[in-house]
Design a binder for these strands. Structure first.
Lengths: 343, 343
DNA sequence: TTGTAAGCGTTATCAA
DNA sequence: TTGATAACGCTTACAA
């Protein structure tokens, strides 16, 4: 920094009073003469005095800063969550330090380390795909450091979580496909170690069972990378043999669905006539592609808002969620568009 | 914070040495016996010592934190830029504080204020649509506070800027439309006060002139909000009269183009046969819609990387760009897809 | 090779 | 009503 920011001392010197007097005057402490208050405030204004948050942070052991750990910013869903976080943070005078892990565990760990040394007051986490051991989080939680997990559920018993109802979202999506007469429904699943993937898969299976269809393991294919290309290739293989082809796909997110859509088009299968398709997450493009993609929408903004609101309560000690652990589950919404409607 | 983090003092006390010795040992200063170093480091490890960045920041007047001001996180382009920023910041051990303005000037100002009181070392800015007066920035620059502007060019003479070549991007897009035989080309323009909007409009006009077409003001319509709905409505009006209809659209970004596409479809105009369409920014959905949208791709990640790299150089005093102001202009790339090819 | 002390900007405590 | 002092955690002259 340069800026030669004016400090309390500068004001004190100029006014021939002590820094404590200035400090008090600035915050309208009782026991300071109106005259002094006026002079101090005037000069502060004139010098464009701005309290040094770093000094305050050191003094008070509180930084008004929270850290956010996120896999990738360039994900429509996550950017929505960040947006929700940012709004509430701003409204409560908190700063947000952002770190993206690019789905890497080492980066997750080192980001947490720098954030901690920057004395963040709490942490909002959606952990990386590589994370299977949660000790770096649970260690902190044992020391009562406030953490709220969102979207991705950690395997930590007393964790505070905000997620969407992935089971229900998947269940509704697949039930909808069944109601449209699709019978052989593929699930392009997410990485095994993510709880969200498991939940969606369970929802898929339960919907099949409830719809009188026997689940078939060979119709569940993991698309771990989550790229268009990956699901394109997977889809081509699945639909290669014209005999006994699947007639629908439930993809674990919209990018995966988009890859599948391209693959289907490339082998001249019509959507939704020949194959029904439902994605997940309601990416921005989903309503714009052709045919518009049915999808399960997640309330990203609200997830962000909810997570940080709970975190701030923990920081302010209003609630001790870790003692009575809470798992907030927000509802998804099935958006039925053309890609899955053939009746 | 809680965490009861171990401090240098704790280590010193336990080892019966002074804190300065511990401090020196930790950083391998010369003149500390190997024996002491070993003991100190061992204990530091054991206590899981983590330097307090806040104390350091206060002591050194340097926070290793940079602020990022951005209109909206939920913009594919901006999230790409953030990603680039984040990468370089992480590699250089800098933290990133993020503030989104939601295109509001008051929020821009107050965000800068809190960031400054948090002693950020520099600022990366893409200012809001409401910003027409740049004094809150130039004041800081006069005090030699490092700022790099990206994407949106401020009206400040000695500003350091990183943008893309919007004139050229627009010029190429429109020239391409002309080469495809389109003659009556609409421009759905951006907000007037943004330099990027002006540049794109100028590129559009120059391309027309160079293509032997006389620009027609009535074919330039401002879509300030940039929403699908807005451009949908505008497009309907423009193409309402079957006689002497326009035959192409150059939109100032892809969302606007997508709205126009829907409008054209809704009145049964075929793309690209009847109407050619080119957007701007290469949003993630652009290649997935039908027909795939031709667009001008901006190197968002690279913009972020470049901007922060320059900022770090300014902070480290390696370069004083403000003395020899620099405007880095990165090249766009015209992505020709189906929506604009009819030959 | 190590220790002492001052200082970064602020506030809380105690004293005047 | 105000001031002096110590402290938050760390670094760095200067002294020993």
């Amino acid at each position: 920094m340069k800026l030669g920011q004016a400090t309390i001392k500068d004001i004190a010197r100029e006014l021939n009073v002590s820094s404590s007097t200035v400090s008090r005057a600035l915050k309208d402490y009782p026991g300071i003469s109106d005259e002094t208050k006026r002079k101090v405030k005037e000069l502060a204004d004139k010098l464009n005095y701005r309290p040094n948050a770093v000094a305050l942070s050191l003094r008070k052991s509180k930084s008004f800063t929270i850290g956010v750990i996120i896999p990738e910013v360039v994900h429509f869903f996550f950017s929505t969550v960040i947006s929700g976080i940012e709004e509430v943070a701003f409204a409560n005078n908190y700063n947000v330090i952002l770190c993206q892990t690019n789905e890497r565990l080492d980066r997750e760990k080192s980001s947490i380390d720098t954030m901690l040394s920057n004395q963040i007051d709490g942490l909002l986490v959606s952990y990386s795909k590589e994370t299977t051991d949660f000790e770096h989080f649970s260690k902190l939680m044992d020391l009562e450091f406030p953490i709220v997990f969102f979207d991705r559920l950690p395997e930590i018993s007393n964790a505070v979580n905000v997620t969407v109802n992935d089971f229900e979202g998947a269940y509704q999506a697949v039930t909808h496909l069944i109601s449209q007469g699709y019978k052989k429904i593929v699930h392009l699943a997410g990485p095994k170690n993510l709880a969200i993937s498991k939940k969606r898969k369970e929802g898929y299976i339960q919907a099949l069972l409830d719809g009188g269809i026997t689940p078939d393991e060979s119709l569940i294919v993991e698309c771990a990378a989550g790229t268009e290309k990956e699901s394109f290739d997977v889809t081509i293989v699945l639909f290669d043999n014209p005999e006994n082809r699947p007639d629908a796909i439930f993809a674990h997110h919209d990018i995966v669905a988009a890859g599948a859509m391209m693959a289907l088009k490339s082998i001249n299968l019509r959507i939704p006539e020949d194959v029904g398709l439902v994605g997940y997450s309601n990416w921005q493009f989903s309503s714009m592609i052709d045919p518009p993609l049915s999808t399960v929408s997640q309330p990203g903004f609200k997830i962000g808002e909810t997570a940080i609101t709970m975190l701030l309560e923990m920081i302010d000690k209003k609630k001790d969620y870790q003692k009575e652990p809470v798992h907030v589950v927000l509802d998804t919404e099935l958006l039925i568009r053309k890609s899955s409607v053939r009746l």
